[in-house]
Design a binder for these strands. Structure first.
Length: 443
DNA sequence: CAGCAGGGGGCGG
DNA sequence: CGCCCCCTGCTGT
């Protein structure tokens, strides 16, 4: 940060990487997801915001789909491709086998994924002009411009008239619930199914418009010709034999997130963070998120306490009080967490507010949890940070809360504080006693 | 049964 | 306000 005339410029060094990473994490946790993509019987809860950001196709679709949580059924797109595209949209990178590239690109074009889709018809005129790409002249809202090396013109040769989603084509026959039974494995399903049809897949009628479960039939269908805003193609990872098995798994790499406090430089470091977001194995992402958030030079300001009124408590790291506080009057405990105010909201002295009264709502910066008690938030945050300050004197166990440690210690000491009043039974756990009491009741 | 997480009451500083 | 303590419910083995 630099100061000029008292004006501070606070910069969050690895903001982009952090942002993307958290987004990805949110998707894995299916948090805040507000649209479900369905293809091949699999369901992918994702975020409209992200889809809209990456695809005008989706943007327009959602624009005309007021329902809260639409389910978009994608025909003619393989779930493997869908997963790859989601990985691409969320992480900005995806690994794909060369043999699958054509199919993937085709899917990307159908969905008009920025950065992956190419302008369909290479300028009708001709390729004559080198920079004939549409985006060169457009304002371009900072959409990605990755470069895809065109290794072969496989797709362009075979599919010259291919893509462009059908302007109309309402989902006349909603075949989306067909496999509803086996389906809800919106799991991070990673279908390895290598289809043989591979390259030459029908793209004639691409994407079926949205339908949703519960809401009064929207006109979600009419996705009119979305403006073609496609960009350059993406760069494939060449010798990707190594990740064949997981070919489509999302993979993220980001720099500048090394949790160490060494990076005060302020520039993104190139240090790759080999986190492999294996969608199958959720993996302790929390820590990664925390690291990202707790970067020493990172912008903890918005996480900082509200009490600081105006002042930012940078450098104070993300510790216990790293939670935002807002007045419930202005924002409800749920639903508006996204608005991370960076200001100290309580100018007034809300000092002698009885605990639990309508004082401050403490919002967890990692999840939707909210509480009126700061000490509860402190405990809760440990569930994200993984901090377990209470260690068992008898074993290596450690707990995040003293209570839970005490509970654990009973397993060593054999203490059974819960005793049945009608028989000598004793239990070390409350719920065990309750279960035991049921027997007395039944008999 | 053990672990974990959330909520509430009480108390002292 | 922070901490201690207790209670409760859920989950996994």
């Amino acid at each position: 940060m630099m100061a000029s005339d008292g004006m501070l410029s606070l910069s969050w060094n690895n903001h982009k990487a952090t942002f993307c990473h958290i987004l990805s994490t949110l998707r894995e946790k299916e948090r805040y997801t507000d649209v479900t993509l369905a293809c091949e019987g699999k369901f992918y809860p994702v975020h409209k915001l992200v889809l809209s950001t990456c695809s005008e196709y989706f943007e327009k679709m959602f624009e005309h789909t007021p329902c809260k949580h639409p389910v978009v059924v994608l025909k003619d797109i393989k779930c493997a491709d869908m997963e790859a595209l989601l990985s691409y949209m969320y992480d900005g990178v995806v690994s794909v086998l060369q043999q699958d590239l054509a199919r993937l690109i085709k899917a990307a074009e159908l969905l008009q994924i920025k950065g992956l889709a190419v302008p369909d018809e290479p300028p009708l005129k001709e390729l004559s002009k080198k920079n004939a790409y549409p985006w060169s002249s457009r304002d371009d809202r900072s959409s990605p411009h990755p470069k895809r090396r065109r290794r072969e013109d496989m797709m362009t040769s075979t599919s010259q008239g291919s893509s462009l989603p059908p302007p109309e084509s309402p989902p006349s026959s909603p075949q989306h619930h067909q496999e509803s039974n086996q389906s809800w494995d919106h799991s991070k399903s990673h279908s390895q199914d290598q289809r043989e049809d591979g390259v030459d897949q029908r793209v004639g009628d691409p994407v079926e418009p949205a339908v949703e479960f519960s809401s009064p039939k929207q006109e979600a269908s009419h996705n009119q010709e979305p403006v073609d805003e496609s960009l350059v193609k993406e760069e494939v990872i060449e010798g990707s034999e190594d990740n064949q098995g997981e070919g489509m798994d999302s993979r993220i790499e980001y720099g500048g997130m090394g949790g160490g406090d060494s990076n005060t430089g302020g520039e993104e470091q190139g240090s790759k963070f080999p986190h492999q977001l294996d969608t199958k194995h959720p993996q302790p992402l929390h820590e990664a998120v925390v690291e990202a958030l707790a970067g020493p030079s990172g912008m903890q300001g918005w996480l900082g306490t509200g009490e600081l009124g105006g002042g930012f408590s940078m450098l104070e790291g993300y510790s216990e009080d790293g939670n935002q506080e807002v007045h419930p009057a202005s924002t409800g405990p749920h639903g508006t967490q996204q608005s991370h105010q960076m200001v100290g909201l309580n100018g007034d002295g809300s000092r002698n507010m009885k605990r639990g009264a309508v004082g401050k709502v403490h919002l967890c910066p990692f999840c939707v949890y909210s509480t009126l008690r700061k000490d509860h938030m402190t405990k809760h945050i440990r569930t994200h940070t993984g901090e377990k300050p209470f260690t068992c004197p008898h074993c290596s166990y450690s707990a995040a809360s003293k209570d839970n440690l005490r509970q654990h210690v009973r397993t060593h000491t054999g203490e059974k504080p819960y005793s049945c009043y009608s028989c000598p039974y004793r239990a070390s756990h409350r719920s065990a006693l309750q279960f035991h009491m049921l027997k007395h009741q039944s008999s």
